[in-house]
Computed example of a mutant assay.
Amino acid sequence: MTVGSAPGPLAKGRPAPKVLLIDLDDTLYRAHQVADIVRQRIQEYMVQKLGICKDEVATKTTEFYLAYGTTLAGLVANGYHIDYDDWHEFVHQGALDYDTLLQPDPSLRDILCSIDIPKYILTNANRMHAECVLARLGLIDCFQGLFYFENVMELAASHGFDVSHGVLCKPNPRIYQLVAEQLGVGLSDVIFFDDSARNLASAHALGTTTVLVGNDKLSPGVDLAIPTLHDLPTAMPELLDQPGLVHEHHTSHGRTHEHHSASLALFAVPVAVAGAPAESRTSSGGIAVHVPAS
């Protein structure tokens, strides 16, 4: 694990965080098959449904990802008309066998439950994919809310973003500003975890503390680098208010031990302003954030 020579993210003099914002794919979990399947399906969609030459899709996928944050955002920005529900069904739900590709992670559940700070998912993927992943990992009730493609786009539209001709996604700085505003916190009150140094750098430039997950090399815009979120108790012990809940990460016959989770039911409610009493929890923009049932 690499933390560099600089003081850690929660070093003396830095305000205590009010929110943890955590990416989903390749951050909360890592399964190379999932990424490979999604990449293949994106290219198949471009050929089958958009009529792009098969020999061009690999290049275009990379170009759009680098220029716009996601291939989907690049396609839309370049004039392709895409049914978003159809795209996500083809790329995610219609292609991924979540039960086979993912396993419950009780060790990470222990860690997340030991952190008494509001935790939110921020993903460029859609709602159903996020729910399926979190449910399979056994982590869905560890989070106070989820920001995903649909409600981020709704939030963007409510603040004047032209969603008919563009997709708002990481690493666009606007997404972090809108999410922080929706949560009623400043960007300096947030610790953001992501596997993409580029996504982190754009948030860091706004004052957010950033943690790179899955890579042990620090880079500009990254405050801390850790191999996995399982390293949080060692790398950021000050986050854990209940360290006694954290157990060793162990497997049996290649499978992580099962852990009984609470209800996986989800419902949409207005966003809670951090620190506000329950009766005053309202959303300034009227955008619902998916929140796990307790």
Rank of each mutant, 00 (worst) to 15 (best):
M1L: 10
T2H: 08
P9R: 02
L10T: 07
L10G: 02
A11S: 13
A11C: 12
P17T: 08
L20C: 05
I22L: 11
L28Y: 01
V34E: 11
A35Y: 11
D36S: 15
D36L: 14
D36K: 15
D36M: 13
Q40P: 03
I42E: 14
Q43P: 03
M46C: 12
K49S: 11
L50P: 14
L50A: 13
A58G: 00
T59L: 06
K60Q: 11
K60G: 04
Y65K: 14
A67W: 00
L75M: 12
A77R: 12
N78L: 04
E89L: 11
H92I: 12
A95K: 13
L96R: 12
L96W: 14
Y98G: 03
L108T: 08
R109I: 03
I115M: 06
I117H: 00
P118A: 14
K119C: 02
L122K: 02
N126M: 13
N126S: 15
N126D: 15
R127H: 11
M128L: 14
H129S: 15
H129P: 15
H129K: 15
H129N: 14
A130I: 13
R136S: 10
L137C: 13
Q144A: 15
E150S: 12
A157W: 04
S158K: 14
D162H: 10
S164L: 05
Y176N: 02
Q177R: 07
L178R: 05
Q182R: 08
L183Q: 08
G184H: 04
V185S: 01
S188R: 08
F192M: 01
D195G: 05
S196N: 02
A197P: 09
A201T: 10
A203M: 01
L206Y: 01
T208K: 03
T209N: 06
T210I: 07
T210S: 13
L212V: 01
T228N: 08
L229P: 08
L229W: 02
H230V: 00
P233T: 05
P237S: 04
E238T: 07
L239D: 02
L239N: 04
P243C: 00
H250Q: 00
H250P: 00
H253W: 01
R255S: 07
T256V: 06
H260N: 00
A262G: 15
L266M: 06
L266W: 05
A268R: 02
V269N: 04
V269F: 09
V273M: 06
E279H: 11
S283I: 04
G286A: 05
I287N: 09
A288H: 08
A288W: 06
H290D: 06
P292N: 02
